[in-house]
Computed example of a mutant assay.
Amino acid sequence: MESFKVHEIFSLEDFKESIPFTAIGARTCYSSGDLNYLLNDPRVVSKEERAKFLSKLGNYKHFSVFAHSFAYKDLNTLEEEKLNKIVGKELQDLPKDKKAEIAAIKIAATRFKSYYNPKYKTVIGISLRHYLEELLETDEKRYFETFNKMAEYDIPIEPLGYKDDIWLIGLLKEYDGYAVFYIDNVSRIMTHQLVRHTALNYSQRSQRYVKEDENLLIIPPSIKESNCQIENDKILKIIKDIVKEISEYIKNTDTKDSLKEKIAKRVEKFLSSEENRSIKNLFRYIDQLTEIIYDYTVYSCKIKREDARFILPHGRKTTIVVSGTLSWIKDFITKRTDPHAQWEIQKVANAMKYLLEKQNIEV
C-alpha cells in the first residue's frame, strides 16, 4: 500500500481562517499579558511579525500550538488519483464516494487527534499540526517556507463573546465544528483537571519562561468565607520576618535596579498589610513567602525559572487557550457542569456553555 501525507490532501489555505489562533496560543505560553494585550501584540496582529514568530516555533518544532488551527475536508472533492494513493491499489476499483469514505476512516485511524464522524462519511477534520509535522518529514525547505506564506492570510481575531474571564475567540460551525476559548484568572489546580480531557488542545502560560512576579493566588470561596481563625498570631509574624529578611538579601545582589525596586514595593505593601488571623490571610502569607523565595532563587541565586517554580503553590493564577471540536467541547461541558465537579472548573464549563448557546450552538 502506498504511503500518503496530510499535506497532499489539505493545503495551507484550508487553515487560513484559524491560523492567527496558533499565534494567540503560543503568545499565551510566553506572555503574562491579558487577551487585550495579545490582540495588540505584533506577533499576533502583524503579518510579518507573526510569520517570524511562527517560524521560530517551527524551528523549535513546537507543534502543539498549531492544533488550534483546524479544518474539515470532504474527501469526495479530491482527485481520484489522490484517493487511490490513500486507499491502496486493491481498492481502486471501488466507487469514488466509497473510496473517499475509506480514506477518511484511514486518516482518522492513523492521525493523532484527527476527527471523523460517520454522519459525514467522506469528511475528515485535522489540525494544522498534522499538516506541518508531515510536511517537515517530506520537505524541510518547503516546511520553513510555509511560515512565510502564513503571513498572507491576515484574518483579524474578533472575540465572539465573554463571560467570567472566558472568551470565545474562534468558532467553526461546519460539520462537527471547532471552538477556541481563551481562559484567564484560573488556578493551575483547575487546569490540572482540565487537561485530563485529552481530546482537547491546550496552550498554557508557562512558568518556565514567564515571570511569576506579582501573580495572584486563586483563593477558593470556602476559604474566603471561612470564620476559622489562626489561634497564634506568631505564625504570621514569623512569615513576615522571613519575607523581610530575604528581601534584604535581594537588595544587596547584582539584580537589576528596576527589578529590585519592583520587589521592594511589593514586599513593603505586604509588610504593611493588616495582620488578620483568618485562614484566608494565612493562604496569602504563605503565597507571599513562596514568592519571595522564588524571587531570591531567580534573581539572587541565578537559578532558572523552570527550577525555581517548584516552590510556587499550584493554586497560582494561570491562563490557558483551549480548542477542540464541538463534540469534544460538549463532552467536557457535560462532565464538568455536573454538581460533583469542583467549583472552579464548573464555573469554566458553565461559561463555555453560555458562550456557545449565544452562538446558537445547542449544548
Score class of each variant (00 low, 15 high):
Asp139Ala: 05
Tyr60Glu: 15
Lys149Met: 12
Thr22Phe: 01
Glu140Lys: 07
Lys121Arg: 14
Leu194Asp: 01
Ser46Met: 07
Leu236Met: 11
Ser11Gly: 09
Asn215Glu: 10
Thr334Asp: 10
Phe70Trp: 13
Thr253Pro: 01
Pro339Cys: 09
Lys173Ser: 11
Gly161Met: 12
Tyr153Glu: 09
Lys262Ala: 08
Pro313Ile: 06
His192Ile: 07
Glu81Tyr: 07
Met190Gly: 04
Leu172Asp: 12
Ile86Leu: 10
Lys173Asp: 09
Asn281Ser: 13
Thr198Glu: 08
Leu271Ser: 07
Gln193Cys: 03
Glu268Pro: 00
Lys240Glu: 10
Gln193Asp: 13
Pro20Arg: 04
Ser114Pro: 05
Lys16Met: 07
Ala151Glu: 06
Gln229Leu: 14
Glu79Phe: 02
Val123Asn: 09
Asp254Glu: 14
Gly33Trp: 01
Pro20Asn: 14
Tyr249Thr: 14
Met352Leu: 11
Lys240Pro: 03
Lys99Cys: 06
Val348Asn: 02
Glu140Ile: 14
Asp154Pro: 00
Leu355Tyr: 01
Ile279Leu: 13
His340Met: 09
Ala199Met: 05
Gln229Gly: 04
Ala341Glu: 07
Arg309Gly: 06
Arg336Phe: 08
Thr319Cys: 10
Gln204Met: 13
Tyr178Trp: 11
Asn185Asp: 12
Leu39Pro: 01
Glu225Ala: 10
Asn185Lys: 15
Glu81His: 01
Gln346Ser: 13
Lys237Ala: 13
Leu128Ala: 09
Leu91Thr: 03
Tyr182Glu: 10
Tyr120Lys: 04
Ala71Trp: 00
Glu248Pro: 05
Leu217Met: 14
Ile329Ala: 04
Ile107Lys: 00
Ile303Phe: 08
Pro313Thr: 13
Ile166Tyr: 00
Glu152Thr: 12
Gln229Tyr: 02
Leu216Val: 06
Glu49Val: 06
Tyr30Thr: 10
Lys99Gly: 05
Ile246His: 02
Glu214Thr: 05
Gln288Leu: 07
Lys269Glu: 14
Thr191Glu: 05
Ala23Thr: 10
Lys358Cys: 10
Asn59Glu: 15
Ser32Pro: 09
Glu261Asn: 15
Ile230His: 02
Asp176Ser: 12
Cys228Arg: 06
Phe147Leu: 12
Ile329Phe: 03
Ala71Gly: 04
Glu248Leu: 11
Glu80His: 01
Ala51Gly: 05
Glu231Thr: 09
Ser273His: 04
Arg111Ser: 09
Glu225Met: 08
Ser247Asn: 15
Phe10Glu: 07
Asn350Tyr: 12
Lys237Ser: 13
Leu160Asn: 03
Lys330Met: 08
Lys335Ser: 15
Tyr131Glu: 03
Gln92Ala: 11
Tyr285Gly: 05
Lys265Gly: 08
Phe147Arg: 01
Glu137Ile: 15
Thr138Ser: 14
Cys29Val: 11
Ile345Gly: 03
Arg196Ile: 05
Lys99Gln: 15
Ser32Arg: 04
Phe66Gln: 03
Ile238Ser: 10
Thr28Cys: 12
Gln342Leu: 10
Lys260Ala: 13
Gly315Ser: 15
Ile230Lys: 03
Val44Thr: 08
Glu81Gln: 03
Ile279Asp: 05
Gln92Tyr: 01
Lys335Leu: 13
Gln229Trp: 02
Gly25Gln: 02
Glu81Ile: 12
Leu38Tyr: 01
Phe310Met: 09
Asp34Thr: 06
Pro20Tyr: 01
Ile155His: 02
Ile263Val: 14
Ala179Ser: 13
Val322Ser: 01
Val65Pro: 02
Asp307Pro: 03
Val267Leu: 10
Lys106Ser: 15
Leu356Lys: 00
